[in-house]
Write a protein that binds this DNA or RNA. Structure first.
Ligand SMILES: [Mn+2]
Ligand SMILES: [Mn+2]
Ligand SMILES: [Zn+2]
Ligand SMILES: [Zn+2]
Lengths: 139, 139
DNA sequence: GATGTCACTGCAACAGCGTTGCATTATCAT
DNA sequence: ATGATAATGCAACGCTGTTGCAGTGACATC
């Protein structure tokens, strides 16, 4: 019987970093993994309202997950950062922001755009943000 | 003699909106027009330090210019908004952010990227942000 | 299973960007 | 010149995110 290739659970992913596996980290990474959209700090804090996790801890865990490559952090245009689990979507991908409900979704992209930068400019990362109306709000 | 097609001056652009042409509006739109990069509120406030313009007025003018289509407002990944004059660059264009000095430049783009959104999602605007090193910082 | 270490957490205070309310000023139509 | 009111100045505020430090809990070791 060959071992099925299961996606790493949040706990396994955390364990693999070598750092401590704490309740806050498990709860937050699990939340990001289950979410179908990019979550703000506020979203996370509300979802974890029953778990007595301090706001500062939420900030620190989110940034730590990002630094470990388990989450990625994007700047929303509401002066808020949003986070989503890495591994659900193959990079690179774009982000879709609904102007009605404010939700941000990760969407796969086909081609990367052609761009000719001015002389001397070196591109290291390309970020593609789409704004519009999501399926639920258009419905 | 045909009339030369000169680009509208800041004052003319302001006049065309039908609203009042004030010192703060002229000063700020002139600044944005002359700048070769997208300016933050901080940038504007510092540049106008000698003109006794209140910070709140700067915020209001910048947002008003945006609502009138004379400037466009982009969200920087430092939880700050940046503004640049409209009309200097043909839309659509991309934005290049230097990770070293933090400056944001408007760069023209050739092709728009191909994207297939999930069913029901309606795209209204596509924003392309490039991160890397600018010519001056690359030396 | 008990123990010790130090990574992690909780708490409190803080900083910066942007907003709101209201009195005052200055633009522009008349 | 005069008046109406759009725009400004000022003060107080809200929210996101950060920092410092004391206390706790995860995990390695025994
Ligand atoms: Mn994403
Ligand atoms: Mn631009
Ligand atoms: Zn929506
Ligand atoms: Zn630079």
């Amino acid at each position: 019987m060959s071992k099925p290739i299961a996606p790493a659970s949040p706990t396994e992913s955390l364990r693999a970093t070598g750092a401590r596996v704490t309740g806050a980290r498990v709860a937050i990474l699990s939340l990001l993994t289950q979410a179908n959209r990019a979550l703000s700090h506020r979203d996370v804090e509300q979802a974890l309202a029953n778990e007595h996790v301090d706001r500062v801890t939420v900030y620190r865990v989110l940034d730590w997950l990002t630094s470990e490559g388990l989450a990625h952090k994007i700047a929303d245009d509401e002066r808020v950062f949003r986070f989503s689990a890495v591994g659900k979507h193959d990079d690179p991908h774009a982000h879709f922001k609904c102007r009605t409900c404010g939700d941000v979704f990760c969407v796969p992209t086909g081609s990367t755009p052609k761009l000719n930068l001015p002389a001397g400019f070196k591109s290291e990362e390309v970020e593609l943000n789409i704004k519009g109306t999501c399926a639920r709000c258009a419905g």
